[in-house]
């Protein structure tokens, strides 16, 4: 190239006009494509957040298959396979991993390695960055859920619901759940003090949460005080909503209070979503100034 080429437009030509909301949205969409490409190139996130629930569903289905059906009545009918029983929990775990774990670790590492500092020096709106992260979570999580449903149906012969009402429940619990998880992921990305400590700070509490929220273990097996603790956090409610959508109606008796309680699912997730948005708005900074 020549100096003439570099000079094709003079340095110092001022921007024609102020940046508007259309630009924020356009850059947000560009960020979604960029972020999603990066997600699938990082082998460890693909395994630990994308494939992990798939692997667990396979293990549970195979390992507990010999225990027979779950929830059969005294006459031996109405039961479902182990795969069908674990499917809602694995989808809920996938929502947690794709949202909270993925973004919490990802953004903490981006803060640690200088990615955010570089972006801070560009005219990228923070909102476009968030749109990119939310979009990446949405795209990868949808693929993950599709993979779980396909695996359950094709490999383990799970009968998926056929009535629209169940799928409506599935859709709204999924949407509210994944958006809440993504927002909370952004919110907790401030907690690790360095990029290196991100996985150590964020992953263990989430594993504990999965054990106490009815993902791996039946929720009503837990002592009351542990149920009360788990009920504060959103995962228990996402899992409950997913069970409502995917399990037969007869399983509602196994829930606390003997019902799916979907209104409370919506209320608790809604509170977490709003709280997460407020925390993001108040605490998110590209960089920690003066450190």
């Amino acid at each position: 190239m020549t100096a003439r080429d570099l000079a094709a437009l003079p340095a110092g030509a001022p921007p024609a006009r102020r940046f508007g909301p259309g630009r924020t949205l356009r850059l947000g969409l560009a960020r979604i494509a960029y972020e999603t490409r990066l997600y699938f190139r990082a082998g460890d996130t693909v395994f630990f957040t994308f494939l992990f629930p798939v692997v667990l569903l396979s293990i549970f289905s195979v390992a507990f298959g010999s225990l027979g059906e779950v929830g059969a009545g005294p006459d031996g009918t109405g039961g479902i396979s182990q795969a069908a029983y674990y499917l809602p929990g694995m989808i809920a775990a996938g929502i947690l991993l794709s949202g909270v774990q993925n973004l919490g670790v990802d953004i903490a590492m981006e803060r640690g390695d200088g990615t955010l500092k570089r972006l801070a020096g560009t005219p990228l709106p923070v909102l476009s960055y968030f749109i990119g992260k939310l979009g990446q979570v949405f795209v990868t999580s949808l693929a993950q859920v599709a993979l779980l449903l396909l695996l359950a149906q094709l490999a383990f012969g799970v009968d998926l619901p056929t009535d629209p009402a169940s799928w409506f429940t599935f859709a709204w619990v999924y949407l509210v759940g994944i958006v809440t998880a993504a927002v909370l992921g952004i919110a907790i990305s401030r907690l690790p003090r360095s990029g290196k400590s991100a996985t150590a700070v964020i992953i263990p509490p989430l594993i504990v949460l999965q054990f106490i929220s009815g993902v791996f273990l039946s929720f009503t097996m837990l002592p009351g005080w542990l149920q009360a603790i788990a009920s504060v956090f959103p995962l228990k409610w996402i899992a409950q909503g997913m069970r409502a959508a995917l399990l037969p109606e007869s399983f509602a008796v196994a829930e606390p209070g003997g019902e799916w309680n979907l209104p409370l699912v919506a209320i608790v997730l809604g509170i977490w979503l709003v709280a997460g948005l407020v925390v993001c708005k108040v605490t998110f900074r590209w960089i920690r100034k003066d450190t």
């Binding site: 960029y34 990066l38 190139r41 990082a42 590492m109 390695d113 200088g114 990615t115 570089r118 020096g121």
Partner: peptide
């Protein structure tokens, strides 16, 4: 801006 040091993961 060209910062003094950067260490991005560089998967692009």
């Amino acid at each position: 801006i060209v910062l003094q040091q950067t260490g991005e993961s560089g998967n692009v």
